[in-house]
Design a protein around this nucleic acid. Structure first.
Lengths: 228, 228, 228, 228
DNA sequence: TATGAATGAGTTTTCATTCAT
DNA sequence: GATGAATGAAAACTCATTCAT
């Protein structure tokens, strides 16, 4: 397994310039380093010393900004949440379009996200929400319920317009997103296994087709696709 | 005598369950106790002492059967896998039926599984596969690829029979199972949050309807349902 | 300054017999070692590692019996208090005698105590009651108020019998004991200084004479002394 | 910016007292702040950061004037000693008067001192003389031996004049001052306990009466008092 | 000089693991 | 085998002290 400080060239090279003063930058540098390590190894298996090393600061410096390891983790969690809030804006702004366009776009977007480090952050949140119960709450309130809420109301509107079949909109949201989420977790967990990983790009495209065929009333999803 | 008894650390876990002293059962009792605790708290946050207490044995006894904590975890992982293999037999035996029957049954089955402790075990595997890379491999080889494989070939056969639309069968499998898997993880992670949790029974029923409509060629899924 | 492990011959000699099992004895051995070091250096300047070394156990063993350093200190404080309670019995049993006998005996007793480690324990309590507020309370309730209370009521009885001059009995108690206490503290604090330290034996004898002359009505304290 | 501000450790000590920025005053302001904190918490439990905050300067500034924490403590000790030297002058100038006047005045003076912060300084010296052996020496040479010396020679002169009974003058000094010293320590240590604390004013008056009766030859102490 | 962010040696504390009984 | 007291390496955390600004 790879030790830390392997892919952070600016750290190891040359004599470490000591005692740089950059109070503004420090906390976020530390949070960023911690985020990487927590995502790689989880909370318990990450040592403060490793975080310090990756952030390029002394062990004690961490405690200048974060009194305990748990506080550091909470800051990391907040950063993750905040980062995803931005992403939400982009999604939200698209949800006014016709549902037959929204769904493929949303799924394609999910496939793109899967190429970022978001999947490993999701894995982190799934793992550590056991030990940090409020983590699940924050993540729910600030991210999950938003995505789900926006999608759900878009579905409701489409149902009211008679475009979609009836059905609980929240569950329909699961029907739409679920396969992408599962694929993303699958890839994340199985990345080390030399198994055939699902191509999320293709999954997005194919699932869009299937789910639209299942959801859209009287519609030839093929036509819908063609239009977009 | 025990003047300091009030200073001794009190464990969070309940009263020690003194089980029947059956020598042969020891290892599996220990594994069972460890399974519960690992699922509750994760590998890192579970102390061997807690496992011992819950198993009703002395700390040292754990090491008689499992040389290290990691070995204990591997035994736990093996048990989880084995447990699910049995479940697989049941699923497999049903996959010969017409696909319009298989899919609703499979989803209903997933909804039932969600009521067991399987979801927390899945969470455990998602969490700890970071630290135990072979865990992901074993889990993949023995469980996931089996389920996915069986379902995939059922889909292939149905496609060959002209019952289903074309499409990558493996990705179709994700379209089918993904929403249930996601709902199950959602419930697991958000159980502590007073949020509206998806009803997996309903999700299974509704998703079956939607996905069949999306997948089945020329078929009125309603008819399919009626037939079953 | 003398390093530890200097006056504990049985510790250093020979290969340390490891892993001796003496659960009964351990806590008190540790408390005893801690007591010595706390008395020598105070709470803050005593390292747990030193306590462990002096007690002849591993660092971790301390934490088996005392979850925190503060808990260890509290156990030490309790031991000190308990030890002095025994001493109190001896004093109490003598207080029924005529006051002219009681006072010289009490002062002589104080001079003897001064030869034990009690003075350094008193110093410890004076020092650390700042950081451990309940320490002062316990010490007051269990020791000080007892000594003072017993002496005070002996004085009251003597006043009622017309043997002693009037006056607040509690303050008279200070007049009696105060010089011995002060001398004891003086010796404790100044022991390292090559100053002339008061001989507490002589102080006890002389102060008895003086204070009796000041307290006893119509009495020739010389006669009182002669009788005893 | 200061996103983590809420994670920063909040100090127990009050709001930073921003004092006038008078360069010359700096060292003594620092010493004063340190004096207060050392007296409140002792040397070990006082952090340099606390001292800086209370002195209204930056942490680094302390080290401009005092190379180490121990040096700061020594400066504090010197200040205490110096402060008391002044007090000594006042006492000394009175010791020429008749002993029956000197003793009550001295005791009354002690009762007044008890209302200042001197008792907590005495406690500090008692506590820290363990770690700072020269502290005891300085304190002895510059304060204690002076008081004791002056009082002792006053007693000697009175003995030579035939006013007082025979006896070791130094021990007589303990008989005189001891109760006040003890009462002062008692109040200091037990101030947090809701116990009955001795009234030092009354103790001074009553002990003066008692001790004079015990010390003065052929004298009615009542007359002596009346004269003063 | 004054500052306060940064440091790192030193302590406390944890807990998997050992081993005498 | 079973036990649980004891261990000690490893981790979290503290704080006097340094030094770039």
């Amino acid at each position: 397994m790879s030790e830390e400080a392997d892919n952070m060239p600016e750290q190891v090279s040359g004599p470490p310039r000591r005692r740089q003063r950059r109070k503004e930058a420090r906390p976020s540098e530390i949070v960023e380093a911690a985020l990487e390590l927590f995502a790689e190894r989880g909370f318990g298996a990450t040592r403060m010393e490793d975080v310090a090393r990756r952030a390029g600061v002394a062990k004690g410096t961490l405690f200048v900004y974060f009194p305990t390891k748990q506080d550091l983790f909470r800051a990391v969690a907040r950063t993750i949440t905040a980062g995803n809030l931005e992403r939400l804006q982009a999604i939200a702004s698209n949800l006014e379009r016709p549902i037959v366009e929204v769904i493929p776009a949303l799924l394609a977007h999910a496939a793109i996200i899967a190429e970022t480090r978001v999947p490993s952050l999701i894995r982190l949140l799934i793992s550590e929400s056991r030990l940090f119960p409020d983590l699940a709450r924050v993540w729910h309130d600030e991210v999950v319920s938003n995505v789900l809420g926006l999608l759900t109301s878009a579905i409701e509107r489409a149902q009211e317009r008679g475009e979609l079949h009836d059905g609980d909109p929240q569950l329909i949201a699961f029907s739409i997103i679920g396969p992408m989420f599962s694929g993303l977790i699958f890839r994340e967990v199985m990345s080390g296994v030399d198994a055939e990983l699902p191509d999320l790009q293709k999954l997005a495209a194919q699932h869009a087709q299937v789910i639209l065929r299942g959801l859209v009333k009287e519609a030839r999803p093929e036509e819908a696709q063609r239009r977009s």
